[in-house]
Design a protein around this nucleic acid. Structure first.
Lengths: 233, 233
DNA sequence: TCGTGGTTTTTGGTATACCATACGCCAGAC
DNA sequence: GTCTGGCGTATGGTATACCAAAAACCACGA
């Protein structure tokens, strides 16, 4: 009897039970939980307990600790020996720095995109801006935020630098975890549409200097807005 | 009797026994070991073994695994379930991306520095460039590399954005771990001195646009040099 | 000689027990 | 009443034993 290599069949029964390791699953679950916590809970219970979490998830402390250690390194929690595990609240200063880094990276991505973006990618950007302008009345702020992120991610993707994408995704995640993130959008939607339109025009013209400058100014303007009007807890 | 607060005494006996956790010590040791390995060893032994390391360090697998997990997340090693732990070799593409990110962040730091750098910081930059020009004959490439990094770190510091500093330090570390990193310096020292001098001038003139552009072009030029002439393994 | 099947070994993943220290409670002295 | 010191408890850190899957090895047969 001949047994075919698994890769040659079309079965792929595989994904049963989410083939991820317990550590990975605990990590995702905790990440999601912390994010929700930041949105819903108010000031209460900033502390986590390894044994308690271990019991809730039904796994031992070992994989849980590995997941927590990773979250600690990413800056979402802070582990203090023999004291506890605390959910980290970003300070306003840290948020401003994140936006600054974002501005630096995305403006570089825009520059790269002027050289390397495909026609398809430019078309996609055009679509994102257009769709956005048309929805103007009906759209909710929440949708705007998602669409907004999508637009910026599309620029970054068009720059073809995976590392920029990775770092920015991390930044975006931390932003998402901020409670008053709605402030990011407050009174900025109209202005953003204009900015976005101009940015796409510069990209289509392959004008690197202008595209870079527009993206940088656009994001730094958000930074200033947050610095001036947002009060973080 | 009056007992003085500890902070008012001048004892500070504290640092007994390197208060670091075993995990932290294992992490530092492994990091250093991997770095040396990348420099000295040739293609041999890209694989690590948890039990073996555990025996060598004299600690159990648990803290060792946590240290390895952290190195894995930082991209220095890759842990594959039931296969082994492998020291990661950066591809040429990844190196180019790191330099690109560096260019984006340091140019932004230069922009910020034009607004926020103190006179002392500008003076320090001046010193770094001057000292460097004078040593021209006697200096070794190795020293150049260190001085070079120092110069760039000084600019980043002057930008007052801690996050940019953190990310760049990570990038610099990975660069240091590259074997043929001497190529970075090959035939570039003379040009660098000119570049650095101009950059400092722009900073002292508080000319953000020029400083940003010069820093970006300087680093992207290094990127192109690597892309063209460096062959990574 | 080559391939084929099972068995042993290796190796990272997980569970669990124990350790050491920071904190809180409470009794006792002044 | 307040401060002090011991002692118990909570909690992250560490050690160790076991598990499962992948790889390596080996014997056997065509």
């Amino acid at each position: 009897m001949v047994t075919l290599p698994v890769s040659d069949t079309q079965l792929k029964i595989a994904p049963i039970g989410e083939g991820l390791s317990l550590k990975a699953r605990a990590y995702e679950a905790l990440k999601a939980a912390i994010l929700n916590m930041n949105i819903y809970a108010d000031e209460a219970e900033l502390r986590l307990d390894e044994r308690d979490l271990s019991a809730r998830f039904g796994v031992s402390r070992t994989p849980l600790r590995e997941a927590l250690a990773q979250l600690d390194q990413e800056g979402l929690v802070k582990i203090v020996a023999r004291r506890g595990i605390f959910i980290v609240r970003k300070t306003k200063g840290e948020i401003l720095e994140m936006i600054t880094v974002w501005a630096a990276l995305e403006s570089m991505a825009a520059r790269l995109a002027c050289r390397d973006a495909t026609q398809d990618e430019l078309a996609e950007l055009h679509t994102l801006v257009d769709k956005f302008s048309q929805d103007e009345v009906a759209r909710q702020m929440g949708e705007y935020s998602e669409a907004n992120i999508k637009f910026h991610q599309a620029i970054i993707r068009a720059g073809k630098c995976a590392l920029i994408g990775d770092i920015c995704n991390g930044l975006f995640f931390h932003m998402r975890a901020i409670r008053q993130r709605t402030i990011f959008e407050q009174d900025r939607a109209k202005r953003s549409i204009v900015d976005h339109t101009l940015i796409v025009e510069a990209l289509e013209a392959r004008d690197a200097e202008t595209a870079e400058r527009l993206v940088r100014e656009h994001t730094l303007r958000l930074r200033d807005h947050v610095e001036r009007y947002v009060r973080v807890d």
